[in-house]
């Protein structure tokens, strides 16, 4: 009787040890309940699997690849994600065409951008949105008030003090240009910040400069 109980408990114990392997942790993602659902059939740009044998045991498509394989073999490095086709332009909801000022020499920026006008009105709403965007994209270097006292400015050089005397007279177009293509040691932020958001940030920076 007691030997039976011991045997039963050993059986349950080994089951528990086996089950413990289902738990995720470290490099182990854990046991998947329905692997065919976790591993998309469609191209997944953020979870690309290039190993053709991955998940062969769960194959439901009757092809010669593993179920988890998720790559586009026609692309370099079998990438699912691609850059936009060359010579195409991205247009936003307003139908704005992209701004092109890429190869403007550094000292010509004020001249080139002099005629560049913001398509947005200076409403409180736009400035408030600009503030939010400024705090998302600019604050860690330029500081909450634009005084170049963000945490990152301790580490990187060339962070402009937007409240400084030499920046007081820059136009919104100039700010828009600098966000898009960078200036001095600042990198180009055109890929991160949409044109509309850039104009909103420019509005906020001008508002910030007027603050006492």
């Amino acid at each position: 009787m007691s030997m039976m109980s011991i045997r039963n408990s050993i059986a349950i114990l080994s089951a528990a040890v086996l089950m413990a392997g289902c738990k995720a942790g470290g490099d182990n993602p854990g046991r998947e309940y329905a692997p065919n659902m976790y591993h998309s059939v469609a191209y997944e740009p953020l979870s690309q699997i290039t190993d053709t044998d991955a998940g062969r045991w769960a194959n439901s498509l009757n092809n010669d690849r593993g179920e988890y394989y998720n790559s586009n073999g026609y692309n370099p490095y079998k990438m699912n994600m691609r850059e936009p086709a060359p010579h195409t332009v991205k247009r936003n909801a307003y139908g704005w065409l992209p701004y092109h000022g890429k190869n403007v020499p550094k000292d010509s920026v004020p001249i080139v951008t002099a005629g560049l006008r913001s398509p947005l009105d200076s409403t409180a709403e736009v400035v408030a949105e600009g503030k939010f965007l400024f705090e998302s994209y600019c604050k860690h270097c330029h500081g909450a008030k634009g005084e170049a006292d963000g945490k990152v400015s301790e580490k990187v050089a060339g962070v402009a003090n937007l409240r400084g005397s030499s920046y007081q007279n820059i136009t919104e177009g100039h700010i828009f240009h600098v966000i898009t293509y960078g200036a001095g040691l600042m990198g180009a932020h055109g890929s991160q910040v949409s044109p509309e958001d850039r104009w909103k940030i420019a509005k906020y920076v001008k508002a910030l400069q007027k603050q006492k």
Partner: peptide, 16 residues
């Protein structure tokens, strides 16, 4: 252990 193990199937909490 068994119940915990069963509940962790399909749950990837802790995956690092």
């Amino acid at each position: 252990g068994v119940i915990d193990g069963l509940y962790s199937i399909g749950v990837q909490k802790g995956y690092q």
